[in-house]
Simulated assay, not measured.
Amino acid sequence: MLRRPRPGARRGLHRHHRQALEMASLAAGRASSARVKGLATRIEKARDPEITTTTG
C-alpha cells in the first residue's frame, strides 16, 4: 500500500538538500582535513541530482 506524501514534504526535502549543499560548499573551501573535503565533494555530487528531482 502506497501512502500519499504529507503536504510540504517535497518542499522540506528540497530545503534539506539545499542546506546539505551549502554546508558541503563551505567545508570544501574551509576544511583542513582531506577526509572532510572528500566527504563534501561526495555530498555535492549526490545532492545535485536529488535537488533536480525534487524541484521538478
Rank of each mutant, 00 (worst) to 15 (best):
M23V: 10
S33C: 02
H14R: 11
R30F: 02
G38Y: 07
I43C: 04
A27L: 09
T54N: 08
L2K: 05
I43L: 09
D48Q: 15
G8V: 00
G38E: 05
R11P: 00
R4Y: 14
T53G: 06
D48N: 13
R15D: 13
R15F: 08
E44M: 14
R42W: 10
L26G: 09
A34V: 06
R11W: 00
L26E: 10
R6G: 03
D48P: 13
E22I: 07
M23I: 11
M1Y: 03
K37R: 12
A20Y: 02
H14Y: 13
S32K: 10
D48H: 15
R18V: 12
L13Q: 14
L39N: 12
L39E: 14
S33P: 03
G29S: 05
I51C: 05
S33A: 08
P7R: 12
R4A: 15
P49Q: 11
P7F: 05
R30V: 00
G8W: 00
I43E: 01
I43P: 04
R6N: 04
L2G: 03
G12F: 01
A28E: 05
K45E: 14
A27F: 09
A28H: 06
R15S: 10
H17M: 07
T41P: 02
T52D: 15
I51S: 10
K37T: 01
H16W: 06
T52Q: 15
R42N: 09
A9N: 04
E44Q: 15
R47G: 10
A40T: 04
L21W: 12
V36W: 00
A34C: 04
G12S: 09
Q19K: 11
A31S: 07
S33G: 03
Q19C: 08
P7H: 09
H17N: 11
T53R: 14
R6Y: 05
S25N: 13
A40V: 02
A24V: 06
D48W: 15
L2F: 03
T52A: 15
